[in-house]
Amino acid sequence: MKIGVVVNEGPYTHQAADSAYRFVKAALEKGHEVSRVFFYHDGVNVATRLTIPPQDERHIQKNWSALATEHGVDLVVCIAAAQRRGILDANEANRQGKDADNLAEGFRISGLGQLIEMGVQTDRLVVFGD
C-alpha cells in the first residue's frame, strides 16, 4: 500500500513526531511504500539540524534523517510554516538575506501543493497531530 504521512506537532513537546516515526518504520518493515512525509504547523521544527537533546534521550531529527537516507523517504517541510518558525535551507537563507540556515540532512523545503499531491497519489493519508 502507498502511504502518505503528515506531522503537525513539534518535537519533544508532543508525541506526534515520535508516533509518526514509529508508524513509518513499521509500515516500511511490513513492505509498504511510504512515499512522503509532510511536516506542517510546529512539525517543521523537527527539521532543524541545530537540535541538541540530552545524550540519553532520543534524537528525533536524526531519527527522521536516517529514514530519508536509509529508505529514501521524501521528507518535505512546508515553506510557509517553516519561514514563520525560522527553518531555512541554504537557498532560502541566501534569498532572504539571512546569515545562517538550519535544515537537516534528508529534509527538503517545498510548498503545500506537495501535501495535496500526496493526498491525491497515496492509498492512505495518515495525520499525526494534537
Binding site: 506542517y40 510557509a80 510554516a81 510548498g111 503545500l112 495535496i116 494534537d130
Partner: peptide, 19 residues
Amino acid sequence: TIYALESLEVVLIGAAFEQ
C-alpha cells in the same frame, strides 16, 4: 493557536488541484 489560519492556507493551495 495557528491551526485555523494554517488550515485555511492548505484549503487555498488545495483549491488549485481541482479536488
